[in-house]
Write a protein that binds this DNA or RNA. Structure first.
Lengths: 231, 231
DNA sequence: TCGTTTCAGTTCGCATACAATCTTGCATAC
DNA sequence: GTATGCAAGATTGTATGCGAACTGAAACGA
């Protein structure tokens, strides 16, 4: 894998952090991937110190974990952890809509624009952009509803969700996802907050259910890979 | 101020992190307080490196912030930020109750035990323990409802809330708070999830409203302090 | 007396150095 | 042929050093 794209220089440790989150959100780095300090230091042209600072923050955000004297790794949630993460997202997003779902016209407008961008990325078959935008919709929703705090929390939870989906091969169709985003906006525009909350709940359960179905397949695939090393 | 109590040694950077969170939760360190790297390094008997690692994580958790080449400071939220934090808490906690509020008997039992501990701390006039337990109730709720992810998020949000309350002198009475915790448990025990969510919303709004009322007082007090430095 | 400037002290920002531990490949014994 | 032990290499964990920037106070001038 490479940490390509976004070739900007600047070298603060926050930049490293942002780049890794973006790479995870856009599916460029996979769960379980090793992030060596030295390697990252060379990629970003800084010392290990700054890399470690970024790692510490990412660890606090639940995106990477450290194995003592072995290295840093992108999280690889167990099925139970995956379920807990998705439960938390449902709680947070349903609660968000219920408690401050009354969006104004500009909210709706911003969200519609976002979904348009999603569709464009899907049409262009731009996997990275598509993955990023589909996840970022929820962050965008929190932002436009006026809650930067929830937006920050959702940034981390959606990043984890993308990793979970990658891990468990949850193939919740991108098109379908985008369509679900759209009906949520419809409900918001109609002022029907409970319906929006219900749709959001359903939307997130779709991801969770996909996880359910694919889990056995994934384990079988792993077994097959273990027994047939040429595969 | 001192970072007294809990005299345990062990010296990993996580311990520093935990100690500072506990100190904030229990009201032992105030918003705006300076946390010098050198000072903390001496207190914990480690090098600045480990202190910085702890600070990076606390920064990611929204508990401290850094002012370039001036130092680390416990967050001092503006009124707007305070409101956003409390909004997020309401969304999160209401959502939590709505989506997974069906607690079993053991949940209720654990929560009752917690409230008993709150009352004991209030009776003993143990300010630190009282502050800690009143905040930790919400973390406990998330844990007993089976969501470690939400518990972790709430740990940070309640810590921030304690700091906000300290900053804006929100004197939401401890006794009253504990009583509100109790009626929430009652509703949960009765299986009336919507009522529990409503009560939680109200409970958190109490904090927010107290913030509203006391704001002017706080500014006046600051002004007074500024004019009368011996006060 | 008040405002400005300068200078010394303090503190963080970042890199580097060294120690501890883990991995890995190879040699050796059974 | 397989397993075991060992040593070299690689990687993280922690401390330390140095430079830059900020603070505060003293000195200076109006």
């Amino acid at each position: 894998m490479t940490l390509s794209s976004l070739p900007e220089e600047g070298a603060s440790s926050s930049r490293i952090e942002d780049r890794i989150v973006y790479a995870a959100l856009s599916g460029q780095i996979a769960p379980g991937e090793r992030l060596g300090e030295k390697e990252l230091a060379e990629i970003f042209g800084v010392s290990r110190t700054l890399v470690r600072e970024a790692m510490m923050r990412l660890q606090a955000r639940g995106i990477v974990q450290v194995s003592s004297r072995r290295g840093w790794f992108v999280i690889e949630p167990t099925e139970e952890e995956a379920r807990h993460t998705l439960d938390a997202r449902r709680a947070l997003e349903v609660g968000m809509l219920v408690t401050l779902g009354k969006g104004d016209a500009r909210t709706i407008q911003a969200l519609r624009a976002h979904v348009q961008a999603e569709k464009a990325a899907i049409r262009k078959a731009d996997r990275a952009e598509r993955s990023y935008l589909l996840g970022h919709f929820h962050v965008c929703l929190a932002e436009t509803l006026g809650s930067p705090v929830l937006a920050a929390l959702l940034q981390d939870l959606t990043t984890r969700t993308v990793l979970i989906a990658a891990l468990y091969q949850s193939s919740h169709d991108a098109c379908e996802s985008s369509a679900e985003h759209e009906v949520i906006i419809d409900a918001l525009e109609a002022g029907d907050v409970p319906e929006a909350a219900r749709l959001m709940d359903k939307h997130l359960r779709h991801v969770e259910n996909a996880l359910n179905e694919r889990h056995v397949l994934k384990r079988l695939k792993n077994l097959k890979a273990a027994l047939n090393s040429s595969d």
